[in-house]
Design a protein around this nucleic acid. Structure first.
Lengths: 243, 243
DNA sequence: ATTGTCATTATGTATATACATATTCGGCGG
DNA sequence: CCGCCGAATATGTATATACATAATGACAAT
């Protein structure tokens, strides 16, 4: 364990050390937005590794938006323009459980038919398309926590018509029965309408945070859902945390 | 151009083709959450590439949360739990410009001193810390667009005391003068207080969307800002779009 | 039955090498 | 002076190879 130990074995991978080092230089103000960063060859020499390893470090930093790379001209510290934040939108049941509360689900209404024009637009559906309209309430320790209004496009997911969603929530069912989907989220603030206010046990006109979600499968809308949160909602994180 | 052309040169990199292929299989429902994905050797053979290339494809899919990998046991399609959404929080001026509007900035108030306890907490500061309190209004084509209330920790950024922020906004100045920073964002809905309502030209009690941002540098809070948006706010995107 | 050891296996990291591709720069001809 | 062309250069992709590491399962010992 003496001659062989000369090759000090780092527990953290080399490319991570390089990334960390560059991030540290940036955070310390040594490197400022627009400043050039040593090329791959130089870094490889500096860290005693191969160019591929330095390349990987720089590539990942670039994917994370920390640096900008261009062929021939090199790598520079990115100018922090608008920031990207990783917003976590958890499943309600998991969110409630994570707070150490008892999760409760209730189906308030189940309605089948042709949706109104506004919803039809969201579903990108024709006038003859039928949709399943569900109204649900999620509770934490018995207290109303989130109000969910959802439409499921029966053209895209005909099986949903036979399900009665009394026990299983639409989100859980869809995740289990519809393969995978692209999604869109819209965040907005609104004043609670009388019905929502009553359900969530808040005053009418109180501000609520709404998250609208649409999911697609192969270009067709699966479902349009509107989640209404009373009070605060928070979720955060900068992209740098990922590295 | 005949014998040499046998080696058909793909314009899209091989690792991208592999990623796309696997994503397609998932989206088509061929592969469902929990299902195993061919190992690196198998993929390398299937696509006629080296294991490293297959490895990169799978590693990136794993970083994007599409698959889950474990040594010895292999790679599986990830179970879509809570979703991660990439939320873009652009700079106001860029946002306004992107809408094709004339951006306007106005400093409403500039106030120096010891902040109230609530703000002091946000700044993670002691009772003797002084802060610069700025109140700004951002306009689009003359119409109030966003209301900004900001505190800058003078212990962390003493230079800010000499700046008068009449022309340049605090965000732009900080980006230029403070290296790089980790950040935290909190989203919430609130009812507009009378002053905010007047400034934004909306009715009192109307719902507004608030974004609170704190940024750190080397463990110390640089600034705490509260942005208030009237009406809607939208921004979205699923992680899959990244691949 | 529980625990321990060990070979097996799939993924993870690193290297040296080769060639592809984009971009800049300098020079050459018009 | 302008525009085209080729050289130089830094990044981008791909390969074959080697070894490290974690998880599994089987078999043996307690």
């Amino acid at each position: 364990m003496s001659a062989a130990a000369a090759k000090t074995r780092p527990r953290t991978p080399v490319f991570r050390r390089i990334k960390g080092d560059i991030l540290a230089r940036i955070q310390a103000g040594d490197l400022r937005p627009g400043d050039p960063i040593p090329g791959e060859e130089a870094l490889a020499h500096e860290f005693g590794c191969s160019r591929m390893t330095a390349h990987r470090a720089l590539r990942e930093l670039s994917e994370e938006g920390v640096v900008e790379r261009r062929r021939r001209s090199g790598t520079r510290v990115a100018r922090p323009g608008g920031r990207n934040v990783l917003l976590e939108i958890p499943r309600v049941d998991q969110e409630v459980a994570a707070m150490g509360c008892q999760y409760g689900y209730a189906l308030l209404d189940r309605d089948l038919g042709r949706p109104a024009a506004a919803v039809r637009d969201k579903l990108e559906a024709g006038t003859r398309t039928r949709a399943l309209h569900l109204t649900c309430l999620h509770r934490a320790n018995g207290v109303p926590y989130q109000f969910e209004e959802r439409w499921i496009n029966l053209d895209t997911v005909p099986e949903a018509e036979k399900v009665d969603f009394a026990e299983i929530g639409p989100n859980a069912w869809l995740l289990d029965h519809v393969p995978w989907s692209d999604g869109e989220h819209v965040l907005s603030a609104a004043n609670a309408d009388p019905r929502t206010a009553e359900l969530l046990d808040i005053a009418p006109q109180d501000a609520v945070l709404m998250i609208e979600r649409r999911t697609w499968r192969q270009g067709r809308v699966i479902t349009y859902a509107r989640f209404t949160h009373p009070g605060r909602f928070y979720r955060l994180r900068t992209p740098l945390d990922r590295g």
